[in-house]
Design a protein around this nucleic acid. Structure first.
Lengths: 119, 119
DNA sequence: TGCCATGGTTACGTTTTTGTAACCACAAAT
DNA sequence: ATTTGTGGTTACAAAAACGTAACCATGGCA
C-alpha cells in the first residue's frame, strides 16, 4: 500500500517533520518507546485504542523514516522488539517541550500524563 | 460542525498538543503568521493548495484554542486580520527546533524552506 | 442601477485515515 | 494430533478530512 504524505514541493522542513511525526499515533508511539524497547504486543496494550492494523502501519512508517528500529528474533512464537534510533531520540527533548508548552498554556492538562504503567 | 479531536482520557499533554497543532495545515499557518499579521486573502495566497473552506476551519480552531487572534474591521468589503497570540508565539521556538531536527536528520530537506515571499 | 471585492458559508462528492473481524505461519507444549 | 501464542496480513466497512463550485451580505463606486 503506497504511503501518502503531504505534498511538499519546497522541501519545507516543518512540513517534513509533520509528515514524520504528525499522525494521530506517532508521537505517542515515540514517547512510549522513549522508556525502553518494547514488543509489538506490549505496544498494543500501552495504546489500548489503537488497532493492530494501524499500529503495524505506523511502526512501518516510523521505521522507514529512521525513527525506530525493528528487531525480529528467530523464535517461535515470534518476538519483535521496537526501539528508538538516534534520530528518534533526538526528537524527545522537542516533544517534551511541546508537552510543557501545552501544560503551561492550557488548564486541565497535566504534564506527561501519558505515563507508562506496568502491564 | 462538531470539531473532532483525538480522545484523550488521561489529559496527556502531548496528545493535547497534537490536537492543537497536528493538522495538515496548522503548523504552516502558525509559521506564516510568525512573520506578522495577515489577512484571510493573503493566507490563501501564501498557502496555494489549501481551500477556502479548510482554511476557515483551521483558523477557527486555532482561534478557539487561543493560538491566534482574529480581528474584524468594520469596513466593506470586509477586512479580517489574523495574528498569533502570546501562547501561539511561545510555540515558535519549538516549531523551529522541529524544523532544525528534520533538516539535520534528513537529506534533501532544507531548513525553513517554507519561506515568506512577497505576493 | 448594477457591478465589484472581501471573507466567508453551504451542499455535495472524493480521498484518506481508521476500525473490525477473520485469517495465517510457525514451533513448542499438551 | 490438537491447541496455544506472537506478530502480523487481508478484505471490507466506517469515519474523518479535504476539495469544488456555487452562493451570500455589505457598502462603495461607476
Amino acid at each position: 500500500m503506497a504511503r501518502k504524505v503531504i505534498d511538499n514541493p519546497n522541501h519545507c522542513s516543518l512540513v517534513h517533520a509533520m509528515n514524520i511525526i504528525g499522525g494521530k499515533w506517532k508521537p505517542i508511539i515515540i514517547y512510549i518507546l522513549a522508556n525502553g524497547n518494547l514488543r509489538f504486543g506490549k505496544l498494543l496494550i500501552f495504546i489500548p485504542t489503537i488497532s493492530k492494523k494501524v499500529l503495524t502501519e505506523q511502526l512501518r512508517e516510523l521505521e522507514e523514516d529512521g525513527i525506530i528500529n525493528r528487531e525480529r528474533f528467530a523464535e517461535t512464537p515470534p518476538r519483535v522488539e521496537y526501539s528508538l534510533t538516534e534520530v528518534g531520540e533526538a526528537l524527545l527533548p522537542i516533544l517534551r517541550q511541546l508537552s510543557e508548552w501545552t501544560a503551561a498554556s492550557f488548564e486541565d492538562v497535566e504534564f506527561e500524563a501519558c505515563k507508562i504503567v506496568d502491564v
